[in-house]
Nucleic acid binder design. Structure first.
Length: 776
DNA sequence: GGTTAGGATTCG
């Protein structure tokens, strides 16, 4: 209820306000968007006549004084307060000078008149759009008791002016499609600034300048073509053209301009009004803009960049380095290969911030971007791995200096990428959130680039892990290759494929359970499978310690909750949430449960009974996954882990989207939860010897085919673990002299790892399968 | 009730 009256008869004001949060004094106010858990109190010192905006919406200005009991000399003691929209009508008739009011869900912004009127440096802005409530405690209780109203929460009906209808001097609401924008940058004054040009089907365009002390409150525009909704922009004339500037109560929503993607508003404030009419408006503008694509820039990737062109690049940061005082180097990639010869910016490897193996692995696809002047500040703040849009990047062709010196005209000039200083043409670097449409598309390009790179002959990551860690015949898929001796193999350059015949004289790890690792197909890193002791500790630390916070997250109707106490060493509260589904038959083995506060033993027990078990933890407003060192899902007894580097975990509530259908596959669960699943792989090192030479070869990719056993299954099956032991004992028999070891035939491929003098040749067993396993 | 900017390439 936007306006409520409090009566003395109903008890002390403080009691009546319980539930409105905490009282905040004027000098503790902060520049934040509406804080729902705080209220502010004051006496009405002045009340001005309401004023109408060009939108038809009313504004009421009142001045509040902190306290009537303690006279204060502080200029913080009175504060300008602006009330917008539907709330004005009620406040205008009910509020009287001298009344005490309490305000919630207000927004504090800088007061531009503070230096003149000597009042508080901030002002308060209230609108029902932001959920503001005004409580009034009238002195003349008898009179106003008659006008207590039960006002319904009626949202303001906003009117939007077509861009060709706007007039000088009015404050209006508009919708438009972004034709040009400069991303937020620091102005020479006190605020961040952003300029936006919008267009609409009326054919007119409007230049807008938006300021805010907090860059987060500026429009979240990611690209031209985005749709924006501005509330309360003031129209004024500049250089004989109309321009818009943010007016008091300004708010903005931004939408992706693509057809068919969800119209999810990116808001400048925590609460906003969004109706079905808005949705129609967004869709209409999207249709119009997409039918007139000629007005917007086309997407350019590194593969299709032209010489001397300025373009916007959507990419991921791989590494960065300071070059000098005015330049920072960014190494970026977008999954495509730039066809031009590239100029590399010389920097010390030690000066590069970023994952060394990533820098090496992605090297052939990365480009060097030099950023200058004002952009170095942004560039320095970026973390490798961040997704970026670099706007107005200059693809510059430069003749190589050595070619110039040797007079070798005609030598291919090299391409350099510069982000020049200044903000002209929207120049700048913008980190993109991982959930935006452009990043989704970029990730697909990066993934496909990685998977087509799978066959490349280098894999530093794998080698790093192996170096730091502590008969039967074999059928090969390449019978057409003539077998070679290991002596010959050792004398040939890499990369090359060979078929060999040798004895397995040693293998590692000897403890076979250590041969199963977790592998991320995205970043290609390997990690150990967590052991039980660690898991038990992490589970109780992560889940158990916080369990029992009591309150159930909001909107929790999609599961049923059961809670009980468990008293072993320390008292724990176990929470089980049974996810409701549309299924007629709900059997435990087809059910999904969310568990919290459980020990490892209990987790094992639940996973034996229930089909899907998801360990969770409670946060104040949400149910979340635990740290990714804990499995995010146990499905049919299989423990699924997520990659800490490549996952972007979402609140567990997103699982609701699965309750409508039957797709409770681990991959579907991982996808909605934002988890990059790790797969179980075998990783072993075979020492092979055929008398002519000896070498170490890795067995991993293809190891499941080699053994005919799945690495994930071997984790949960003692039978398979015993079988693997028997296989290895057959291939490399203990208590037997080496000359009696069986001979294996298999395929080997060689590849280089490292650079320069550190380069070495490695070998990998591939495309090979053990035969005669039935007998083992 | 309004300083900042007010789209307009390029030193590197």
């Amino acid at each position: 209820m936007p306006l409520q009256q409090l009566r003395d008869a109903d008890g002390p004001m403080e009691t009546q306000l319980s539930g409105c949060g905490e009282w905040i004094e004027y000098d503790k106010l902060q520049l934040e968007s509406a804080a729902s858990n705080k209220y502010i109190k004051g006496t009405i010192l002045m009340k001005y006549p309401p004023h109408e905006l060009g939108t038809g919406e009313k504004v009421l200005k009142i001045v509040l004084e902190e306290s009537t009991t303690q006279p204060s000399t502080s200029n913080q003691a009175s504060i300008n307060t602006f009330i917008f929209g539907k709330l004005v009508e009620d406040c205008e008739s009910i509020l009287k000078q001298g009344d005490t009011v309490v305000l919630t869900n207000f927004q504090a912004s800088k007061s531009p008149s503070a230096s003149k009127d000597g009042r508080h440096a901030f002002q308060l802005e209230l609108s029902d759009e932001a959920g503001a409530t005004v409580f009034v405690c009238s002195k003349t209780g008898a009179d106003s008791a008659a006008i207590i109203r039960k006002t319904k929460v009626v949202m303001q009906d906003y009117t939007y002016v077509p861009l060709n209808m706007i007039k000088d001097g009015v404050t209006v609401n508009v919708y438009g499609v972004v034709k040009f924008f400069k991303q937020p940058y620091r102005s020479k004054g006190t605020d961040y600034c952003m300029t936006v040009t919008i267009v609409d089907p009326s054919g007119a365009k409007l230049h807008c300048v938006i300021f805010n002390a907090n860059a987060d409150h500026l429009p979240k525009i990611y690209r031209t073509g985005d749709v924006v909704r501005f509330h309360r922009i003031k129209i004024q004339e500049f250089n004989s053209e109309l321009q818009a500037i943010n007016a008091p109560g300004f708010s903005v929503l931004t939408f992706d301009g693509a057809l068919g993607v969800p119209a999810t508003p990116r808001a400048s404030s925590k609460s906003y009004n969004f109706t079905a009419t808005d949705l129609q408006m967004v869709e209409e503008l999207r249709r119009w803009a997409n039918a007139n694509t000629s007005t917007f820039k086309t997407t350019v990737t590194l593969a299709d960049v032209k010489a001397a062109e300025y373009f916007d690049l959507t990419c991921q940061l791989v590494a960065k380095a300071d070059v000098d005082r005015s330049a920072v180097l960014l190494k970026v990639w977008d999954g495509s290969k730039c066809p031009h010869p590239l100029k590399d910016v010389p920097v010390e490897r030690s000066g590069l911030e970023g994952d060394a193996s990533e820098i090496t692995r992605l090297g052939p696809l990365t480009v060097d971007v030099l950023t200058y002047d004002n952009h170095t500040r942004t560039a320095k703040s970026l973390k490798p791995g961040t997704y970026l849009r670099i706007c107005n990047l200059h693809a510059k062709l430069v003749a190589g200096s050595s070619e110039m010196r040797s007079g070798c005209l005609g030598a291919a000039p090299k391409m350099e990428f510069h982000l020049h200083g200044g903000t002209a043409y929207g120049r700048g670097i913008m980190p993109l959130p991982t959930d935006c449409e452009d990043v989704r598309q970029l990730k697909r390009s990066l993934e496909s680039a990685l998977s087509s790179d799978q066959d490349s002959m280098e894999d530093l990551t794998l080698l790093d892990v192996l170096n730091s860690s502590s008969g039967p015949s074999v059928l090969t898929a390449h019978q057409h290759i003539n077998p070679k001796s290991l002596g010959e193999v050792l004398h040939q350059t890499a990369p090359r494929k060979h078929r060999i015949r040798a004895q397995l004289v040693n293998y590692e790890p000897r403890a076979l359970h250590q041969s199963v690792k977790l592998y991320c197909p995205h970043c290609r890193s390997l990690q150990e499978v967590p052991d039980d002791d660690d898991l038990d500790t992490w589970l109780l630390d992560d889940g158990g310690a916080r369990a029992g916070s009591g309150s159930e997250p909001h909107g929790a109707g999609w599961y049923e909750t059961t809670v009980w106490e468990q008293g072993d060493q320390r008292l724990r509260q176990i929470t089980i949430r049974f996810v409701k589904t549309n299924r007629l038959r709900r059997t435990p083995e087809r059910s999904t449960i969310l568990v919290e506060g459980v020990s490892l033993n209990e987790l094992y027990q639940f996973s034996e009974t229930f089909g899907n078990v998801i360990p969770t933890a409670t946060r104040p407003d949400d149910l979340v996954l635990n740290a990714l060192s804990i499995p995010f899902l146990i499905q049919d007894g299989k423990w699924h882990y997520g990659c800490r580097r490549c996952s972007d975990p979402r609140p567990v509530s997103v699982l609701q989207s699965l309750t409508q259908d039957d797709t409770w596959e681990s991959s579907a669960i991982a996808k909605v939860l934002g988890i990059q699943q790790l797969s179980y792989v075998f990783v072993m090192k075979f020492t092979l010897d055929d008398g002519s030479g000896s070498l170490d070869a890795f067995l991993w990719d293809g190891a499941e085919t080699f053994f005919g056993i799945s690495a994930a299954d071997v984790m949960i099956s003692e039978v398979l673990q015993e079988k693997l032991t028997r296989i290895m004992n057959r291939l490399c028999p203990p208590k037997t002299s080496p000359e009696d070891y069986p001979w294996l035939e298999c395929c080997l491929k060689s590849y280089y790892v490292g650079e320069g003098l550190d380069q070495k040749t490695c070998y990998q067993v591939f495309d090979s399968t053990l035969a005669g396993l039935e007998a083992i």
